[in-house]
Design a protein around this nucleic acid. Structure first.
Lengths: 235, 235, 235, 235
DNA sequence: AATGAATGAGCGTTCATTCAT
DNA sequence: TATGAATGAACGCTCATTCAT
């Protein structure tokens, strides 16, 4: 026997501070006069507790470095229980991403229907990104997509199909009308990615370099949009 | 987390197609009238073969999912040999990133010294990125930085310090002069990231969605630069 | 150093003769009308099975040469299971020594309280050693201490503090009274190790030379004690 | 990849202080006017340098924990060179023990031939042990025998046959004559180990507990011998 | 004879997954 | 449903031994 070196680190916390595991929450709730939640409701709560815990862990460590044990602990349940809700860790990861991004899809498409003047539109876009993504856990989900997406082609495809292509389609529709009014350069029609580019910068930057050089994301995104939609510009 | 059974059979191939392991190269070299490579030269060859193999594997699977065995096999050497050249996998990864990015650093700073009119400058920037990064393995290295950088703070710091901050400093110097001539909007001085944004988009996109929606990167980057530096724009 | 190929085939037997792995014991127990052992009880059984197996293997090969796999096999469990009970091999070893020696500690100190005439005392000492140590697995544990203690300073310290120093203190107390009665030579007060010396001889001898020259340990220890406490000797 | 924890410890000293590697010594010696040593002489020097280095390493770490690399470094030669002198690590260990103990054998037997009065004899025995063993590297060799001997039955047998049994035979011869003169209790004839017992205690104690409780070995051995051979004692 | 780069079997340890309770 | 003890395949890393130079 040759014993490896020091242990160090990710230790044996049986309960994680700053989180309210569904289990405890529910336990409290069930005791009062509130109606006992149905079996299905309980199941959904559990499921969500797991997803929440998984998001925390995946965000903190990345997919490969995450231990199912830690997810379970954080969710306040036993390890085996996770398998009652998700086939395996792969599935857990993919469902997490889907679950977090699904709600945005509708919102994005709705935007395509409006017909605002460019300056207002720009305002809206910035706001939407900052409030709905950058300042929420969705930022982490997108970062996960960026980091791990390559190993989950099905997930990448889902993300492309359900999120990106829809968002871009909506944008194109909208931009086309604005372009007809001469408010928008044609290049953006071909590369709507350019509109989203600073959002990507913000997410990647905040993950890697925030500590060396903090970034005022809202102002950066605003500046970028202003540059692209600069009034009196147009080709 | 590590899905128990790999999907695509990453089995026991003893030699991987499409690579030129140092071993084979040397075998060929020794046969001709060429002088047998010195020990040191052999060592460097080996070292590079390992780095090349590591880049392939890291790119294909990500750091955590990469198996040392696969790197060795791909490099055409035994597993233990890797440890003759790199202390551990951590070091291997970091050396890989450094080795690949070091050569660009000089080039970037050189650019800051020039004083071209904006339109030519834009051309140059696009070219530099496409030729030196996007069309080389450096694309993969930067993608690795983006994906794994969070778990390698030292590496992120290196990348920020040696690559990004220098590049941005050079850009700012250059933009300041152009701005003085009224060729450039001031916002770019504050957020040079915006100039690099489409490069990031290109790298992330090609990693995740290329197969669903290919992207003409050169044109996209060009379009973006043209938008930012649009003549007759300026505040 | 680890001689590349084992001499005696220590191969792939899945079960080792002469041991009663917890698994088999439990299987038998569960069949009868006996109550199925509680989880905790099972845990303790397992723990002890591991300790027993570890003692066997450590004794047979020494700490460094012992393979965790062999311990597991001998205990009738999977390798990973050991880690549910012991943090690592180091800990396993130390717990083993502590667990085996702890029970003797009390007995030793009790002896210091008695106040027998020397000849009876001598008898007692011999008996205690032979029955409680030499004829039990504790012999092996002490041999392990002797062999491996140097690489486990904490363990050596534990052994010194909890076993030796107590035993020697007890002896000194007792000898002092006997010396006052003129029954004991003063040198023994200064070097109580001399009383224990033949015990050490017995353990080392039986480990190394028993097969070439068996030793009647009980008689040897008796002879030694008689020599030291020889009546009518005294300075 | 998952990188194990901190390195720590047995590092990369390329040369070890406090040792005079044969290589360097020889190098110096060869340059002067001294005759260049014959090939065989060189070989013997090398061999001895290896044995010396091996003794250092084995003593410091035990057999299993010793790295051939460290032995080579300490001997000032390349790893592969060791194999020119010793078949494998096993052999190296065994030869080391033999080489160190062989010189004592003669001396021990010589002692059996003398015919001193017991008090002088006792003095001699103490002195012999302290000067020839306890204060030399042979102490380490014997400690190695004690610790590792079990895994080297051939070595144990050698030690028993060539050292112990001869020493005991010599002692018996000598004691028999003394016993005939009534100077020695008969028990010692049966258990000559008892005479050697404190030597064993000294070696084991100094290896394990010296730091907690230093031992005046010479006085202890003397005290013990005096007790055994106490004048006017005898059965 | 001497070197030291290369090898690859071997081991401790981890952790997703299973399954008896 | 829920648990968590148990499993065992997998992997990073080590190091005795070999062998081309």
């Amino acid at each position: 026997m040759s014993m490896k070196k020091a242990k160090g680190g990710r230790s044996s916390r049986r309960q994680i501070a700053g989180t309210a595991p569904a289990a405890r929450v529910r336990a409290a709730g069930t005791r009062g006069k509130t109606v006992a939640p149905s079996r299905e409701a309980r199941g959904m709560e559990r499921r969500e507790a797991i997803l929440a815990a998984a998001l925390d862990e995946f965000s903190a460590r990345g997919f490969e470095a995450t231990r199912l044990d830690d997810v379970a602990t954080r969710a306040g349940i036993a390890k085996g229980t996770i398998y009652l809700y998700f086939r395996d860790t792969d599935t857990l990861f993919q469902e997490l991403v889907r679950a977090m991004l699904a709600p945005v899809i509708g919102g994005i498409e709705a935007m395509g229907a409006t017909d605002l003047p460019v300056n207002l539109l720009a305002e809206r876009i910035v706001d939407l990104f900052v409030r709905e993504i950058y300042e929420t856990r969705r930022q982490d989900v997108i970062r996960l997509m960026i980091s791990e997406g390559r190993r989950f082609p099905k997930l990448a495809e889902f993300y492309y199909r359900e999120v990106l292509s829809r968002a871009f389609d909506a944008m194109r529709a909208l931009l086309k009308r604005a372009a007809a009014r001469g408010e928008v350069p044609g290049a953006l029609l071909e590369f709507p990615q350019l509109i989203a580019a600073p959002a990507l910068v913000a997410i990647v930057w905040s993950g890697l370099f925030e500590r060396y050089a903090p970034l005022d994301v809202r102002r950066m995104v605003k500046a970028h949009i202003d540059l692209l939609f600069a009034p009196g510009r147009v080709a």
